[in-house]
């Protein structure tokens, strides 16, 4: 049962205090988008063995959503960061590359 540190309130919460929100950094496609775009938004999900960016909500806590970079195979956590961003911040990417030199975004 994993633990993640909420970047909003600073609590290191355990999984039972969190609600999962699956893949992060999805781009929303609304009316006017093609079927392929809508499919990519709605259904096409990454399922990597390795580095993954995820949404989590500190549901039994401050209630805020945040994002986490995590290895799905070893459960190593490279960092958590606020949800108000469309791409992983540089510090998170650096932390990932420090641990996974071969990783490509």
């Amino acid at each position: 049962m994993l633990t993640l540190t909420c970047p909003c309130c600073g609590v290191t919460a355990e999984e039972t205090e969190l609600a999962p929100g699956y893949e992060a950094h999805l781009k929303r496609f609304g009316p006017g988008s093609t079927d392929a775009e809508f499919e990519s938004y709605m259904f096409a999900r990454k399922n990597p063995k390795g580095v993954h960016f995820e949404r989590w909500r500190h549901a039994y806590g401050c209630g805020k959503w945040f994002l986490a970079a995590r290895c799905t195979a070893t459960l190593e956590v490279f960092g958590t960061y606020p949800a108000q961003t469309t791409e992983p911040p540089a510090a998170i990417l650096d932390a990932i590359r420090a641990r996974r030199p071969d990783w490509k975004a």
Partner: peptide
């Protein structure tokens, strides 16, 4: 309520 907060926090912040 969670659905509302999700959109407000993560999409239309």
């Amino acid at each position: 309520h969670g659905w509302m907060e999700d959109w407000l926090q993560c999409e239309w912040w």
